[in-house]
Simulated assay, not measured.
Amino acid sequence: MSEKVVTWWYRRRLVWPLWFLTPLSVLFTFLAAMRRLLYAIKLKKSWQAPVPVVVVGNVTVGGTGKTPTVLAVVEYLQELGFKPGIVSRGYGGTGPFPALVEQGVTARMCGDEPLLLAGLSGVPVAVGPKRVEAAKLLLERHHIDVIITDDGLQHYALARDLEIGIVDGERGFGNNWRLPAGPLRESVRRLKKVNWVLTNGPLGSKHKLPKSVKPIEMNLQVQGWRRVSDSSPIEKPDGEAALVIAGIGNPQRFFSMVRDEGILIDETRVYPDHYDYKVTDFFKVSNDYPVLMTEKDAIKVRSFARPHWYFLKVAMRFPDDFLREFSEQLTSISTNKREALNHGNSSKPS
């Protein structure tokens, strides 16, 4: 999706170039509602995993902070003694699917976000458009006791025990139209059904949630600069000004973070989300300025990175109240599922 269309989406009102897409948005809304109805009346079946499934997703397209949220949830679960695994769609990957993100797998095969999740979390990651197949592969090949699904809120084929909805505090829901005239995958009312709504930064006053929803603010914290070629930490990128690139859902947030670090930006370049960088994209990039990027971009250019290319490492931080409530609910669900599984096994004839 072009940056211009995304900018139009996140205007407060529907702009005229998008008027022609409204019939398709109406059709999209109808088809999505029919699909949800089929699952609600059991004409389509949802697969129930033997371990707890936690969905981290959103009702808008891209750029809300799901990836750092998933990483932070996984880290917290490990602190509690759980053995988590991650399921992701593998957007941008060529497959074959389902597949495990193992050594030798590239971003082109599995998608950039799963590769990043696997590398930073150290836990098993399985990818596939059909998340049930990916979850089954994960359980078959690894000893895990909880599944975290990255961006699976609308994937009803995989039953879930807990749902975390992510909202971009700055951009909110844009013009509140469904795809393709707006950024919404589902109605904002869908957030009434999730267990928690986390906002990436403070929610702007112009963005309205359903009255019964009480959002919890989380924040992305900077952890320092790293060299792209080997991830070694540096104090600050060298040079008086920098070229900053971003191939993510919300590049403007990243540019703002770079400025907040006190770095003068000479030029910015925006690429599509999940963009597959090539060496030729940088043929005309001068060596006189450092090139700055996100960690998601860094994993895709590492093989041809120059010494003065750097990425900004960030991590999501949650309020203690949310972590306490999340751990209590997940522990209870895990205990109940384990007891049900043991009871089922004990009742089978020997």
Rank of each mutant, 00 (worst) to 15 (best):
60 T>S: 03
47 W>M: 03
52 P>A: 00
40 A>V: 01
59 V>K: 01
37 L>F: 10
70 V>Q: 09
53 V>H: 06
49 A>M: 15
41 I>R: 14
53 V>P: 09
64 T>G: 11
55 V>N: 13
48 Q>N: 10
55 V>C: 14
65 G>I: 07
40 A>S: 12
56 V>G: 02
39 Y>P: 12
68 P>E: 10
56 V>M: 04
51 V>D: 06
39 Y>C: 10
59 V>E: 02
44 K>T: 01
54 V>K: 04
58 N>P: 03
70 V>D: 12
53 V>R: 07
37 L>W: 14
50 P>R: 07
65 G>V: 08
66 K>G: 12
48 Q>V: 15
66 K>I: 14
66 K>W: 13
51 V>K: 04
63 G>K: 06
61 V>M: 06
58 N>C: 04
51 V>M: 04
36 R>A: 15
62 G>D: 00
70 V>G: 11
71 L>C: 08
60 T>N: 01
40 A>G: 04
42 K>D: 13
68 P>V: 08
71 L>R: 10
61 V>E: 02
41 I>F: 12
40 A>F: 06
41 I>Q: 08
69 T>P: 02
39 Y>T: 11
51 V>H: 05
40 A>Q: 12
67 T>S: 15
64 T>H: 07
68 P>C: 07
69 T>Q: 03
36 R>L: 09
39 Y>F: 15
42 K>V: 04
49 A>E: 11
47 W>A: 09
39 Y>Q: 10
58 N>Q: 02
59 V>N: 00
40 A>P: 00
69 T>W: 05
50 P>K: 07
45 K>V: 13
40 A>Y: 03
38 L>R: 15
48 Q>K: 14
66 K>Y: 13
55 V>E: 07
36 R>W: 04
52 P>T: 02
38 L>M: 15
50 P>H: 07
56 V>L: 09
59 V>T: 02
55 V>K: 05
41 I>E: 07
68 P>S: 09
52 P>N: 05
66 K>R: 14
37 L>S: 01
46 S>M: 09
69 T>C: 12
52 P>W: 02
46 S>G: 15
41 I>N: 13
44 K>Y: 10
43 L>W: 15
70 V>F: 10
66 K>E: 13
53 V>E: 05
41 I>A: 02
36 R>P: 06
53 V>L: 07
55 V>Y: 12
57 G>V: 03
64 T>Q: 08
58 N>A: 05
71 L>Y: 08
64 T>Y: 06
43 L>R: 15
52 P>K: 02
39 Y>W: 12
66 K>N: 12
46 S>N: 09
44 K>I: 00
43 L>Y: 12
48 Q>S: 08
48 Q>T: 12
38 L>N: 11
50 P>S: 09
40 A>N: 06
42 K>H: 15
48 Q>C: 07
71 L>W: 09
66 K>D: 12
58 N>R: 01
52 P>S: 04
41 I>P: 05
67 T>L: 14
